[in-house]
Design a protein around this nucleic acid. Sequence first.
DNA 1: TATAGTACCTTGCATTATAGAATACCTTGT
DNA 2: ACAAGGTATTCTATAATGCAAGGTACTATA
Lengths: 115, 115
Amino acid sequence: MIMNTQFKKGVLELCVLVILDKKDCYGYEMVDEISQSISISEGTIYPLLKRLKKEGLLSSYLKESSDGPPRKYYRLTDSGKEKKEKLVGEWETFSKGVNNLLNSKNEELKEANDE
Amino acid sequence: MIMNTQFKKGVLELCVLVILDKKDCYGYEMVDEISQSISISEGTIYPLLKRLKKEGLLSSYLKESSDGPPRKYYRLTDSGKEKKEKLVGEWETFSKGVNNLLNSKNEELKEANDE
DNA sequence: TATAGTACCTTGCATTATAGAATACCTTGT
DNA sequence: ACAAGGTATTCTATAATGCAAGGTACTATA
């Protein structure tokens, strides 16, 4: 899936928080989850998870796996849940604003061109 | 209007192209136009316009003004129009993907939690 | 003269996604 | 035992991009 890199900035953080709000996940698993909707690579998710943990939005714990090295599961903290709510709201406002520009520009500009 | 900076990455280019597809504009004017939907500052728009012109998506011409210095109007080139169409499509795919993650996650995860 | 509004431009900074490479574990085939 | 490949984590270096902060210059008003 080819996708505009720039669009993703900041949104991936939102996606990670939303997914972790539903269930605990490890990084490799999250790449799969998110990839169903947005293209993403491992080199992106691990630094992101590390950053979010450092900011106190996530906690983590290790769990052994039957087929590979142990998995590091991440869980939302309370502050992570707050942040998630905040980001979801911001995303809705933002995407509405963009769609506003994309669609409703036609009418407004008729007058502007009537000079 | 306070707004997540990261969400804007790449989207502002789309907004500029969409607006210029409707009518020619100068930078200062575009800040007003876009600000109705998304917060943006001058320090953002001028470098952006310069870059888009350099990439051949925009052409520009000067026009005198009665109340201030001459205005530099920008106009979409053919290649700019192509780029605009492409970006609009990418935005729609992308925002659908994000909303997908935000909303339809509930059902899919019931099974996942049934272990 | 001074102030404010319009309009443009540049520099430097912070943020973030990504590719690429390294490490380590397990399973399967030879 | 060995190699190959999939799973899983991590780090480094790089490229984009938005923005604040500053500057220039023109016009109108007080």
